[in-house]
């Protein structure tokens, strides 16, 4: 019961956040210099055509009315045409977003497993050489931008060792599975094509790992320090004093409370990755959302920019809700407090 109400409250809350974001996006798109109609039609279009398009785009109405029109379109997933691709922005997003999502989800998995794993290892062998190695790797991982890792991985695993492919989403000889979700791995599974699934996965390993490196480092550091903090707590001493085995103390009674900060940061990292993956997507020639967003910005493609930002906003909000649910599951104090304050 309490979790359900907690969830409803969070979703309602998020709707307001997204409304706020939509206003910001709209205002920025309208205060940018240049006439959107003229930009859409090009410099050589006759003035009367531009005027007619301005009429169609409701550009002569007051800003508030324009916003309502824009919002109505956004709610129907209609963002107009992209100047660059000359297609509906929605169609572009449908193509590029799943590609990014797939990559980011795998990166998230790498961060969770790698980050928590390294963090636990580091805390378990605190102040030994294992811990020191993990800590050095962590700091290196945090300060190194993901595109450096991307280039290094391409060179090392792609060209020298030839373990993984470095370009695109599928090999040339693999027939793409029918598009359902737009995520190749999922589509391959839906079509029962294990060969395509494996091939798609192999293509994702390097870019996902490059994207995850910073987050793995961050997660490892946070998990380690949080476990080290909690290791000195009385409840750990009490669990040990009452004869509970070291394995259970570490793996259960220490791990669960220590994961709370890790999960919070992990969620933010994953959501951020969606937006900042531009260079990694470029290096691996990955048709993703970050690349599309960056291209639209360089071309002042306002419709596409608004849509991309809104999609990223929705992704952020969704990830945050998920994180809140996981944290509430891990920490009864938050769950119970939320239920009580209703």
């Amino acid at each position: 019961m309490s979790l359900g109400r907690f969830l409803v409250r969070r979703i309602v809350h998020s709707i307001f956040v997204l409304l706020g974001l939509s206003i910001v996006i709209f205002v920025i798109a309208r205060v940018m210099p240049g006439d959107p109609a003229r930009m859409a039609l090009g410099a050589r279009a006759p003035q009367w055509v531009v005027d007619r398009v301005r009429e169609q785009m409701h550009l002569n109405e007051p800003l508030t009315v324009q916003y309502v029109y824009w919002l109505r379109g956004a709610l129907r997933a209609d963002f107009g045409l992209s100047l660059v691709t000359q297609r509906p922005v929605t169609a572009d997003i449908q193509e590029f977003f799943p590609a990014s999502l797939e990559l980011v989800l795998l990166a998230g998995l790498f961060s969770a497993v790698g980050g928590i794993g390294l963090g636990v290892l580091s805390a378990r062998y605190k102040d030994t050489w294992i811990d020191n190695v993990v800590r050095v790797i962590s700091y290196a991982g945090i300060v190194t931008p993901s595109f450096i890792f991307a280039i290094l991985f391409v060179l090392l695993f792609g060209f020298v060792l030839k373990w993984f492919p470095v370009i695109g989403r599928l090999s040339e000889h693999t027939v793409a599975p029918p598009t359902v979700t737009g995520m190749v791995t999922v589509d391959a599974l839906l079509a029962g094509r294990l060969d395509a699934f494996a091939d798609a996965l192999r293509h994702m390993v390097l870019p996902a790992l490059a994207l995850a490196m910073g987050s793995i480092a961050q997660e490892a550091r946070i998990t380690r320090s949080s476990m080290a903090d909690n290791l000195g707590k009385d409840y750990i001493a009490a669990a040990r004093a009452l004869g509970i085995s070291e394995r259970v103390v570490m793996g259960r009674f220490l791990l669960k409370p220590s994961l709370i900060p890790t999960v919070s940061i992990l969620g933010l990292d994953i959501a951020a990755t969606l937006g900042v993956a531009f260079l990694v997507e470029l290096i691996f020639n990955w048709p993703g959302l970050a690349r599309y967003g960056m291209t639209s910005m360089l071309h002042k493609d306002l419709n596409a920019i608004s849509a991309v930002i809104l999609v990223l906003g929705v992704a952020f909000v969704t990830v945050n809700i998920l994180v809140d649910i996981i944290v509430a599951y891990l920490d009864p104090r938050i769950r119970l407090r939320a239920a009580r304050s209703e």
Binding site: K233, D234, A239, L242, V248, F253, I260, P332
Partner: peptide
């Protein structure tokens, strides 16, 4: 066996009383 000074600190905040008590009983 030991009773710790501060019961609030000696109980793990993210596990139920049952989970903690049963773990102790199981291991004993």
């Amino acid at each position: 066996s030991m009773i710790f000074q501060d019961p609030t600190a000696a109980l793990n905040p993210v596990f139920t009383v049952g989970q903690q008590l049963k773990a102790v009983i199981k291991h004993s």
